[in-house]
Design a protein around this nucleic acid. Structure first.
Length: 450
DNA sequence: GGAACTCGCCAC
DNA sequence: AAACGTGGCGAGTTCC
C-alpha cells in the first residue's frame, strides 16, 4: 500500500503530463544504420558460432541433446559444464541451481566459454537493443514510454523500448547501440545528470557531518579516500582513476545499499587482476598490498572487515545511527514518509526501508526539474526538445542556436530554483554534468562539456 | 497457443 | 543474525 500527500499528487500529475509531451517529441533514429548494424552483427554471430561448433565439448553437447540442442539454453549449458565436463559451479542461482551467468563462467578459463559469452553479448545487442529500436520506430522517430506508477520506490520506469538501460559502460557495445540515436537536423544530442544525487539526498535524511563536509569541500573526495583505505594507499598522488572507481563501485555504493565486507572484499580483490590495477608510479596493486603485509585473500578480507568497521563507526557514525532510528520508527509505525510527501507502507526488509526514501526522492529532484524545463521550453516555443529521462539525467535534442540558452536555464532550474521549491535541499550543494555530441553527430559521440 | 516461470543482462 | 536497492526484456522452458 502506498499513499501520498497533495504536493506529492501534484508532482505526479504534472510529471506524467510532462513525460507525455516528451514521449510525443520522440527521438530521431538512423534506421538505415540500424539495419546495416543488425546485418553486421548477424555475420559476426555466425562467424563466432562456426568457431564454437569446432570445440569437442560442443560436439558432445550436440550428441547429448540431439534435435533440442540449443546454444542459448542455460539449462543445457549447466548440464554440459557441471555434469559432463566436471566443472565446479562457483555460485548458485536464486533457486539454488548451478549458475551459468557471466560471473560463474569467468572462473572457468576455457576458450569455448569466452566464445559463448561473446555470442550472448552480440545477440543481446542485436535483438534487445537494435531489434527493439527498429520495431518501435515510426516515421524515423522512436517514442519510448515513461511510467510513474510502476515502481515501489516512486521512481519511474520506461518501456517499448526501455530508454533507461541503453548500453554505455562497454565501449564497443555503446558505440554500436548509441550510434542509432541521432539529433534533428542542425541539433545536438546529449544530456545533463545530477552528480551523486543519491549520496546528497541520503545526507538530507541523516545529516552526517563528515559526509556533509565531503560534499561541501570541493578539494575533498570521499570516493578517493575510501579507495585509499581499501587498497592501503597513503599518498593521494598514487591513486588512479580506476582505483577510485573500484572504491566507489565495489565498496562505498554496495555498503550504502546494505551489502557487507565479504562481498565487497571479493569484488575489490577480483578487480585488481581483472582491471590490472596499478598505482600511478606503475607498481602493480597486488605487489603493493604484499608490501603492506597482505599476502593472501584471507588477509585482504580481514582488512576490508576493518575498513567496513571504520567506515560506519568512525567515518559516518551519524549515517549508521540514522539507519537504525529510521528502521525502528518504521517497525513502530508500519510506514515511513519521504521528504517529497510519499508514504511507503507494507512489509519491507531493513535494506528496503533505508533505501527507498533515498532512491525515490533523488528521482523526484530530477522529475521536478524536468517539469520546469519542459514547461519553459514549450513557453519559449523552442525547436529544442527533451527526448527522455534516466532517473538522474535529462536527455535532450538541442538546436545549435539555442544550445547555451537552454543549458544556462537548465542549470538554474536543476541547481538553484529547486532549492526554493524544496527548502530542505539547501543543506547540500547540487551540481550537474553535461554531455553532448556535436551538431548533426550521433549520440555515441557525446562528450562531457567543460 | 498463451501464461507463468527461470535465468541472464542492460541501466541507474 | 544476515548480508545489494530499483526496473525492462529476450530466450528457454514448463504447464495448462
Amino acid at each position: 500500500m502506498k499513499s501520498i500527500t497533495k504536493q506529492a499528487y501534484q508532482l505526479m500529475h504534472e510529471g506524467i503530463l510532462a513525460l507525455a509531451e516528451i514521449e510525443r517529441n520522440g527521438i530521431c533514429i538512423d534506421i538505415e544504420y540500424c539495419e546495416k548494424a543488425k546485418k553486421e552483427l548477424h555475420k559476426k554471430i555466425e562467424a563466432e558460432r562456426t568457431k564454437l561448433y569446432e570445440f569437442e565439448e560442443v560436439k558432445q553437447w550436440k550428441r547429448r541433446f540431439g534435435v533440442t540442442f540449443n546454444l542459448e539454453s542455460s539449462h543445457q549449458l549447466a548440464k554440459v559444464l557441471y555434469e559432463d565436463m566436471g566443472c565446479k559451479p562457483s555460485k548458485m542461482t536464486e533457486n539454488e541451481n548451478p549458475s551459468v551467468d557471466q560471473f560463474a563462467l569467468e572462473s572457468i578459463d576455457h576458450p569455448m566459454i569466452r566464445s559463448l559469452l561473446r555470442i550472448r553479448q552480440l545477440e543481446k545487442t542485436k535483438s534487445t537493443y537494435l531489434g527493439n529500436i527498429v520495431r518501435e520506430t515510426v516515421n524515423r522517430k522512436l517514442h519510448p514510454f515513461f511510467n510513474l506508477h510502476t515502481v515501489k520506490t516512486f521512481r519511474s520506469s520506461s518501456q517499448d523500448p526501455n530508454f533507461q538501460n541503453i548500453p554505455v559502460r562497454d565501449p564497443e557495445i555503446k558505440e554500436i547501440v548509441r550510434r542509432a540515436f541521432i539529433p534533428r537536423p542542425g541539433h545536438r544530442i546529449g544530456g545533463s545528470d545530477y552528480k551523486g544525487i543519491e549520496v546528497r539526498v541520503a545526507c538530507l535524511y541523516h545529516q552526517d557531518p563528515s559526509m556533509l563536509k565531503y560534499l561541501n569541500d570541493p578539494a575533498s573526495d570521499m570516493h578517493r579516500d575510501v579507495s585509499m583505505d581499501c587498497y592501503m594507499i597513503e599518498d593521494t598522488e598514487l591513486v588512479t582513476k580506476n582505483i577510485r572507481y573500484c572504491g566507489k563501485n565495489k565498496f562505498t555504493f554496495p555498503e550504502f545499499y546494505g551489502d557487507y565486507y565479504k562481498n565487497c572484499a571479493k569484488a575489490l580483490w577480483d578487480a585488481i587482476s581483472q582491471m590490472g590495477l596499478k598505482l600511478t608510479d606503475g607498481t602493480p596493486l597486488k605487489e603493493h598490498l604484499r608490501d603492506k603485509g597482505i599476502k593472501s585473500y584471507q588477509r585482504f578480507e580481514r582488512h576490508i572487515e576493518d575498513v567496513e568497521y571504520r567506515f560506519w563507526n568512525e567515518k559516518f557514525p551519524v549515517y549508521k545511527q540514522w539507519k537504525e532510528d529510521w528502521y525502528r520508527a518504521y517497525e513502530k509505525k508500519g510506514y515511513f514518509d519521504t521528504l517529497t510527501g510519499f508514504r511507503c507502507s507494507g512489509v519491507m526488509e531493513k535494506n528496503d526501508v533505508v533505501n527507498y526514501p533515498v532512491q525515490g526522492v533523488a528521482f523526484h529532484c530530477l522529475l521536478w526539474s524536468l517539469i520546469q524545463l519542459q514547461r519553459w521550453m514549450k513557453q519559449e516555443k523552442l525547436r529544442s526538445k527533451i527526448i527522455g529521462q534516466v532517473h538522474d539525467e535529462i536527455t535532450k535534442d538541442l538546436h545549435n542556436d539555442e544550445f547555451m540558452y537552454v543549458l544556462r536555464n537548465e542549470r538554474k532550474i536543476m541547481c538553484e530554483d529547486i532549492k526554493e521549491h524544496w527548502i530542505w535541499l539547501k543543506i547540500v550543494p547540487l551540481d550537474i554534468a553535461v554531455s553532448f555530441a556535436g551538431v548533426d553527430r550521433p549520440w555515441n559521440e557525446a562528450e562531457e562539456e567543460k
